[in-house]
Simulated assay, not measured.
Amino acid sequence: MAHENLAGVFAPVLTPFDKTLKPDGPLFVKFCSWILSQGSGLAVFGTNSEANSLSVAEKLELLGLLIENELPPERLMPGTGACALSDAVTLCEAAAKAKTAAVLMLPPFYYKQVPEDGLFAFYAETIERVGAAAFKVCLYHIPQVSGIAITMPLIERLIKRYPDTVVGIKDSGGDFANTRAMLDAFPGFRVFSGSERFLLDTMRHNGAGCISAMANIHPGAIVNLYETRAGADAPAKQTALNAMRAAYDTAAMMPGLKRTVAEYGKAPGFRIMRPPLMALSDPDWARLETTLNDLGLKMPNLDKILA
């Protein structure tokens, strides 16, 4: 069985930078604390964390800060995917030592059209080298970005070889039919949707929850749907969540989310993107802000926690 903490809502936490483009560790810790206060877990170093713009050393430093500040490791699912096997192992070892709930692990994504045997070997070698009994892996399927799919046969092979380690997957492919196929094929496997748009459907088919970028701005509302999914008003709550996400369909997701946190939290460090990504323009923010106001976005106590 998968780790009991590997369920619910997790946020791929946005990473603030200072004017020199260095990660702002203290502000990062405060923002993680706010997300936790809203009931969500922390999938730090995910896609919307600008994870692949961060070095291994920077990720290790930020993870260390979270642990030093006594944020609960059982609510952490750090991203540890890397193109280099040694980098993946280093990050996974740190997560295992910290006793996080799991790691969220992209496949090695630079080389395309690699054989399934190669992907299996990468995960297997990482797991063998880490060697910790409590080490848990949640696979990360986002082929439209990584260019590498986590296929059903690969999942089956990994579960068969490492049933106590490979315990879940985040499906960010955007096709619920694929998510449903995973849920049907692998009972007990922790399947997370990669968007809260699919949260209710995922939970109705015994899924684990969602790992969603939108949990950076209104985690409480997403957690509320997760917790009240059996209620008569669940469909209406899902519709409201969908409307909030749609507000970001006309703006770049990461810059839009970071500008939202910067403005609502009075924290300019969140406006900064590390190149090659670029910050949201003022005209784009004005349009987004109008929509968010119309939708009634609330980020309770964010400015106080980030102060």
Rank of each mutant, 00 (worst) to 15 (best):
A243S: 06
S33E: 15
E116L: 14
A236C: 08
V191S: 01
G64T: 04
I142N: 05
P115F: 09
G41D: 05
L63K: 00
G118A: 15
I217M: 05
N178W: 07
A213P: 08
M214A: 10
F109S: 14
R161Q: 15
L76N: 05
P108C: 07
G231K: 03
A101Q: 00
G131L: 08
K304G: 09
D117C: 10
G220A: 08
E58I: 06
V13S: 02
P23T: 05
L295H: 10
A251M: 05
Q238C: 10
T126Y: 00
D282S: 13
A243P: 03
R274K: 14
M273Y: 02
Q38T: 06
L183C: 04
G131P: 12
P268G: 13
N206W: 02
E50N: 07
L62Q: 07
P255F: 07
G220D: 11
K112W: 12
F28I: 03
A134T: 15
S86H: 13
P187W: 13
G265M: 12
E289V: 00
A11I: 00
A94L: 01
S172Q: 11
E93L: 02
L14D: 03
G81K: 00
Y111K: 11
R180P: 00
T20H: 03
S40R: 10
K298F: 11
L27D: 01
A102W: 00
L36Y: 03
